[in-house]
Structure formats: C-alpha cells, structure tokens
C-alpha cells in the first residue's frame, strides 16, 4: 500500500478497537435484553412481560419517583456545578484545591455513597448523634421512615447531588476553559456587570458543554438505584431499582428487561429533546 492509502485507512483502524468494544459490550447486550423483554417461555414473542411490568403494584410509584428525582436533582446539580466551575475559573487563591476537593465523590461508587448517606441519616447515625450532642434534639429523629416521603426524597437528592455534581462540574470547567478571554474582555470594555457576563456571554457560549452534561446526567439519573436502595430500602422505588429487584430478587429476567427497555426509551427521548432544544446555530459556535 502506498503512503496515501495508509493515510486514508488509518482513521478507521484507530476507530476499530472502540467500535469492537462498543459492539461487544454495549450493542450486543442491548439487543439481547431488548429481545428478552419480548420473548415468551415457549420461544415465541409476547407482550406479557410488559403487561406484568405495568400492572405491578410498584410500577406507577416507580415511574413517578424516577421522574420527580430527575426533575429535582438535575437543576440542583447544574446550579451547583456552574457555581463550582465559575469559582474554579475565577482563579482565586487555592482554586486548584477546590477542583480536587470537588472531584472526590467521583472516585466513590454509587452504592458506597448510598451507604455513607445512610450512615448519616439513620436513627443512630451521625446526624442524629450531632443534633443530640448539641442539645437540639432529645430523642433521635427518624429521617428514613417510609411514611416520611419528603425526607426520603430529600436524603436521596442530597446524596445524589453530593455524588454526581462533580461530573457535571468537570464538563463545565472544560467548557469554560475553551471560551476565549477576548469575549470576556470585550464585555468588560462595554461595562458589563459580572452577572451580565455570566448570563449573556458565558452561558450562551457554554451551551454545547451544557448539552453534553445534561444528556449525560439525565441518562445517568434514569439509571440511579443503588443510592436509593441503600438510603431508603423499600421506602422509595425507582424504575432502575425495580429492574434490579425483578432480576435479582424475583428472578424474572424478562420483566427486568422490559423495565430496562422502558428506561432506554426514556433515555433516548430525553436525549432527543436536549439535542433539539439546545441545538447551537452555526453562527454561534466557537
């Protein structure tokens, strides 16, 4: 082969390993689990598993809680992540230390994070011990009661915000760093206030990063379950938690696959909405 040929082929060769990886470890299992959701015991096709999923006692609460958590957690995480990213970008003294501290939760698994927050909130946990030692409470307050949905959801939101905000922050920091200083200097020249700069210069230019982060976070939010399982037990339930229970506890992989299919459809739908809603016109891109 000539050198020119090699140059033409090289990009495809470089793409090959990751393509094979994705085909084997993502596409193949995805197709398999999709088929599992429709496969009957006798080898034919059926909608029985979807019927079992929809008529299950836990299905409607699981859908509601999943959507509720997505709606609450994502805005909270984005506001926090943006503040954190701007703080790092402001190049204050020790700002690089912030970056390291903010990134710590990235290294902790979902289940471990759930157990940490369970240890905080449980009746004999750290939070109650502190409140009792400070004299603010006489007897422990039960945060994680199944009757106390507000507290259960708050505990999950706190745990998730703590655990998964840093991934959004990292994407936003990268986005912020790609905004040329000239734009901000130009804004200074025209006498823009710091608020104007964030609202009218930084945020519009950050749109592509926000889009990536939103897609990533929303897909991950539909998949969250270990935190919820660890913190609330059977007190709250989510689609992904139900899929886990159907597979692991009730030993019914078909219904679990039906739930996984639903989660996939929701993930694809939300991705489409973000791609369409946050599209960046050609003239606005950097």
């Amino acid at each position: 082969m000539t050198r020119r040929h090699w140059q033409q082929v090289t990009p495809y060769l470089l793409l090959l390993p990751s393509t094979i990886f994705i085909l084997i470890f993502f596409s193949y299992p995805m197709v398999e689990s999709f088929a599992l959701a429709f496969r009957a015991d006798d080898g034919g096709w059926t909608l029985k598993h979807f019927e079992a999923m929809v008529t299950d006692v836990a299905f409607v609460p699981a859908v509601c809680t999943t959507l509720l958590l997505v709606v609450i957690i994502i805005p909270v995480q984005f506001v926090l992540a943006l503040i954190m990213a701007l703080l790092i970008q402001a190049k204050l003294k020790f700002s690089s230390i912030f970056l390291y501290i903010y990134s710590i939760p990235l290294g902790i698994s979902e289940l471990a994070a759930g157990i940490v927050w369970f240890a905080l909130f449980t009746e004999r946990g750290y939070l109650n011990s502190i409140l009792i030692n400070l004299g603010l409470l006489n007897t422990p307050f039960i945060f994680l009661s199944y009757q106390n949905t507000v507290w259960l959801i708050s505990a999950v939101v706190l745990a998730e915000a703590w655990r998964a905000t840093s991934i959004v922050m990292i994407i936003l920091v990268a986005g912020l760093q790609s905004i040329p200083n000239e734009y901000l200097e130009a804004a200074d020249v025209f006498g823009a206030s710091p608020w104007d700069k964030v609202w009218r210069v930084i945020l519009p230019l950050l749109k592509p990063s926000l889009q990536v982060a939103l897609i990533l976070r929303t897909i991950l939010a539909f998949q969250v379950f270990a935190v919820v399982l660890a913190v609330t037990g059977r007190g709250l339930t989510l689609l992904a938690a139900e899929a886990y229970l159907w597979y692991n506890t009730y030993r019914n992989p078909n219904v679990a696959a039906a739930l996984a299919t639903l989660i996939m459809v929701l993930s694809i739908a939300s991705t489409m909405i973000y791609l369409w809603g946050l599209r960046t016109p050609e003239e606005q891109s950097l």
Partner: peptide
C-alpha cells in the same frame, strides 16, 4: 414497629 424497618436487612 420502627418505621425504618423498610430499610433493615
């Protein structure tokens, strides 16, 4: 019964 029973393993 302790209402946290729904978290007990």
């Amino acid at each position: 019964v302790n209402p946290q029973s729904t978290t007990y393993g």
